[in-house]
């Protein structure tokens, strides 16, 4: 997938990224690295900037200062110093290198499950219809929906829609997959089937940066957990360390305590 060697810097390298919406500082000098093949989970209270961070990584949101690099290439801007935005084609090509799965699925309602996956493959990757169809069927099979290739999104359950959403993102063979609370809009009984797909992608070595409130999943599936508070990274570490009840980080302890109180 990539020509760069493993020895280099992290696949995703976020350095000192800050962003404000008007007067509200949403990201304060956030730094974060994700290595190739790593699964990093971001947790934190509502409004702490998790979604904004993910959206900056594929430049759905611009950032005010700092630098984000994927595989050594500056995201969004021509260079960290100039703040000069990349052109439209350049941005599009860059976004094709990151996959994103949305909380609200955002499937294209006028296209079938296969059509949703094929759009990027034909228009962005330049595959023929036949090649794209084959890839779409392959990925639908991977998420357990081979028999739904010709169904419209409206004919699928939430869990099925989200699995198509995942297939659409990974079919582009992105360098990194961004997942923002992808099970939050699902009925509880449908969460498992979606998480199972994410887990199998992780086992296959897909690099992922995800936001989730599924703590058990975060603990089992991630190599590291990032705890965000007030727009900054408050703690980073392996799941055991971060989710330990006796952590010395006050904010994290409060967050976990509140979380446990409301979820168990």
């Amino acid at each position: 997938m990539s020509e760069t060697s493993n020895a280099g810097p992290a696949l995703l390298d976020v350095r000192d990224v800050s962003k404000a919406f008007g007067a509200v500082e949403v990201l304060r000098s956030v730094s974060l690295q994700v290595e190739r093949g790593e699964v990093v989970t971001v947790i934190g209270p509502s409004g702490s900037g998790k979604t904004t961070l993910l959206r900056c990584v594929n430049f759905l949101e611009s950032y005010d200062s700092g630098s984000i690099r994927i595989d050594g290439k500056e995201v969004g801007y021509l260079s960290a110093g100039t703040r000069q935005r990349r052109g439209e084609r350049d941005l599009a090509a860059m976004r094709a290198e990151t996959g994103m799965v949305f909380q609200s699925f955002n499937l294209f309602p006028h296209l079938t499950a296969a059509g949703n996956i094929m759009l990027g493959l034909t228009k962005v990757r330049g595959k023929s219809q036949a090649e794209a169809r084959q890839a779409a069927e392959h990925w639908l099979g991977r998420v357990g929906l081979a028999h739904k290739a010709d169904s419209l999104p409206a004919e699928l359950s939430g869990g099925q829609q989200q699995r198509v959403g995942i297939a659409r993102a990974v079919a582009m063979e992105p360098k990194i997959l961004l997942l923002d609370e992808i099970t939050s809009a699902l009925d509880p009984e449908l969460v498992g089937e979606v998480l199972a797909v994410v887990r199998s992608l992780a086992e296959d070595g897909m690099t992922m940066l995800m936001v989730t409130h599924e703590m058990a999943f975060a603990r089992d599936a991630s190599s590291r957990i990032v705890f965000m508070a007030d727009g900054g990274v408050s703690a980073v570490g392996p799941p055991k360390e971060i989710l330990a009840a006796e952590t010395s980080n006050d904010r994290l302890r409060t967050f976990l305590a509140r979380f446990r109180a409301s979820h168990f």
Partner: peptide, 9 residues
């Protein structure tokens, strides 16, 4: 946003 995310211009 979904269209942007898959790299469409």
């Amino acid at each position: 946003e979904a269209a942007m995310a898959i790299g469409l211009t």
